[in-house]
């Protein structure tokens, strides 16, 4: 029973990681419907940003890197949107192939720039401790990720629901034509949305340096989980993503606790496939009067 409680913070922290990697996708995939396979590589770009900044900021690079990685990954995403994706709107299959190719190119670019072996990003020393919680312990690094995920969710919520730009974004998503005739520059909204979504991937990448490897293949380890969260949560639904991430985190944590890591993955997939059979639109669905 005690070890059962132990797993609770573990599940929460896995959920926070899942949420962080999926938040960017709620914009690019959820809002815009772009299946961006290069999302994982934007995460990687964020991680490498932290690595690069170490030369100047040493132990505190991770903190400084958060805003920098947002801009770096956001810019990469913006370039991708301008140069390629905008020509493929409304053609999900082509976009999928395109972004998958881009992801391979970015992985190879990282390999050429930084070398194939993993690099080390030193965590700030004040993140090396842990707290006792429910009989187990929760590393500060995990707490930091939970805090960061919470901060991102609050920020995104405020942006989407309280700012003019956010309102325009929701308008374009719900009815592109109507938004356009109402004077919203939809192209510019697309650019900004893609910038923010990709930038959030960069922020996730910085956080992941605390717990995982930093190498050219980094993105490939997280991309599937990120899509799972967004699909299970319902496209473009922030609260859906939050709940789905936490639920998957718990499922992962307890699934692995009772069986093993390989089987836990199977359980997660089976549960999600089963869930989508019953509710193909995900946890939450946006109701609108659009005819599409």
């Amino acid at each position: 029973m005690e070890s059962l409680l132990n797993q609770l913070p573990v599940g929460l922290s896995i959920g926070a990681v899942l949420l962080l990697i999926a938040l960017g996708l709620t914009f690019t995939f959820g809002q815009m419907g772009v299946i961006n396979m290069a999302h994982g590589e934007f995460i990687m770009a964020g991680a490498y940003t932290a690595y690069m900044l170490q030369d100047w900021f040493h132990g505190q690079a991770v903190i400084v890197a958060l805003p920098v990685a947002f801009v770096v990954a956001g810019t990469l995403g913006w370039i991708l949107e301008r140069a390629a994706i905008r020509h493929f709107y409304g053609r999900p299959l082509d976009t999928l192939l395109l972004t998958w190719g881009v992801s391979l190119v970015l992985q190879q670019a990282a390999r050429d720039l930084f070398g194939a072996p993993n690099v080390q990003v030193t965590a700030p020393s004040w993140l090396s401790g842990r707290v006792e919680l429910l009989g187990g312990n929760l590393p500060y690094a995990r707490l930091f990720i939970m805090g960061l995920a919470t901060a991102c969710v609050v920020g995104i919520w405020a942006y989407m629901n309280r700012s003019r730009q956010g309102r325009r974004m929701r308008a374009v998503m719900q009815n592109r034509e109507l938004a356009a005739v109402s004077g919203v520059a939809t192209g510019r909204v697309d650019q900004l949305t893609f910038f923010i979504g990709s930038g959030l991937a960069g922020v996730a990448g910085v956080a992941l340096t605390l717990i995982g490897p930093v190498g050219p293949s980094l993105g490939t380890y997280y991309i599937v989980d990120a899509f799972l969260v967004v699909v299970a949560g319902g496209l473009g639904q922030l609260r859906g993503a939050v709940i789905a991430a936490l639920a998957l985190g718990m499922l992962n944590s307890y699934g692995e606790f009772w069986t093993d890591a390989s089987l836990a993955k199977v359980i997660v997939f089976v549960v999600i496939v089963g869930f989508l059979q019953v509710r193909p639109q995900g946890l939450f669905v946006l109701r609108s009067r659009a005819l599409t």
Binding site: I211, P213, Y221, F257
Partner: peptide, 14 residues
């Protein structure tokens, strides 16, 4: 055992 490329070890460490 964990799948190749697995990155989540908090449960295992527990």
């Amino acid at each position: 055992y964990t799948p190749l490329g697995h990155t989540e070890y908090s449960t295992l460490v527990n």
